[in-house]
Amino acid sequence: MMRHLALLSLLGAAVAVSGCENIREQFDMSKSAPDEFRVVSRAPLTLPPNFALRPPDPGAARPQEGTARDQARRTVFRIEEGSGPSVAEVMPDDGRSESERTLLVRAGVPESEPNIRQIVNAETRSINEASDSLINDLVFWRKDEPPGVVVDAGAESRRLREAQALGEAVTGAGAPTIERREKGLLEGIF
């Protein structure tokens, strides 16, 4: 009897402990997925095409970049290796100084579209009209009911007073009626 009781208590303790997360981890019974933030991809190892090529010295200037001043000059003034047409050929004298015309030519003003603002506005307008109709269809999906007959307040008041004076029902002939249209099958849901 004692042996059965010990076996049952041992079995109960095993069942109770198997639900604990810490016990599962200690006995390596739980699954552990890799941390996706620690996984890094590495470039494949390749050999350079020239085996005599030596790696650059740390901190040495790179020959293809030049100095910072040369980089800035090439970026700002769009200096190319070849020489193009002169400033006088591209932009005739229009009262500006030679330096102003040179700056405008190097900035690309002669090749620019003169009415770009109108083109951009027209394209934006066409895109907005197309999306606007879809938005209106989604927001205002219910169609407005057609307007009913407008009741003249003065005439209706006279009619009611005459009907009361004669002792007739006010809902008799000439009384305005409200005619409601039939609702659709799913109309009351939304």
Results as ranks from 00 to 15, higher is better:
46 T>I: 08
107 A>R: 12
57 D>Q: 12
164 Q>P: 00
71 Q>F: 01
74 R>P: 05
106 R>C: 01
62 R>I: 04
78 R>H: 14
135 I>T: 08
55 P>I: 01
99 S>V: 14
153 A>F: 08
111 E>C: 00
64 Q>R: 09
90 V>P: 04
156 E>N: 01
136 N>K: 11
162 E>M: 14
106 R>K: 15
86 S>M: 04
75 T>W: 12
84 G>T: 10
160 L>N: 07
93 D>R: 02
138 L>Y: 08
48 P>K: 13
106 R>V: 03
79 I>R: 15
105 V>D: 02
124 T>A: 13
142 R>F: 03
74 R>A: 15
151 V>I: 15
132 D>Y: 06
114 P>T: 06
61 A>W: 03
95 G>N: 13
74 R>M: 12
65 E>Q: 07
45 L>E: 13
156 E>M: 02
135 I>F: 06
52 A>S: 05
69 R>L: 14
107 A>P: 01
47 L>W: 04
46 T>P: 04
156 E>H: 04
83 S>P: 04
85 P>T: 02
70 D>R: 15
69 R>F: 11
152 D>N: 15
110 P>W: 02
80 E>F: 03
160 L>P: 01
57 D>E: 15
55 P>E: 05
131 S>E: 11
61 A>T: 01
67 T>Q: 05
149 V>T: 14
76 V>F: 07
87 V>R: 01
102 T>P: 00
99 S>K: 15
108 G>L: 03
126 S>N: 12
136 N>G: 08
131 S>C: 05
151 V>D: 03
63 P>R: 10
159 R>C: 03
75 T>A: 07
145 E>T: 04
58 P>I: 05
143 K>E: 05
84 G>C: 07
55 P>L: 10
130 A>W: 00
137 D>W: 11
77 F>K: 02
104 L>R: 05
88 A>I: 00
129 E>P: 01
54 R>K: 14
90 V>F: 09
134 L>K: 10
71 Q>P: 00
52 A>R: 09
62 R>P: 00
57 D>A: 12
85 P>H: 04
103 L>K: 04
149 V>M: 11
119 I>M: 09
138 L>F: 09
75 T>H: 01
122 A>E: 12
101 R>Q: 09
130 A>L: 07
50 N>Y: 07
128 N>F: 08
46 T>E: 05
67 T>R: 14
51 F>D: 09
158 R>C: 02
66 G>S: 06
104 L>E: 07
162 E>Q: 10
101 R>L: 03
149 V>R: 15
141 W>S: 08
157 S>H: 10
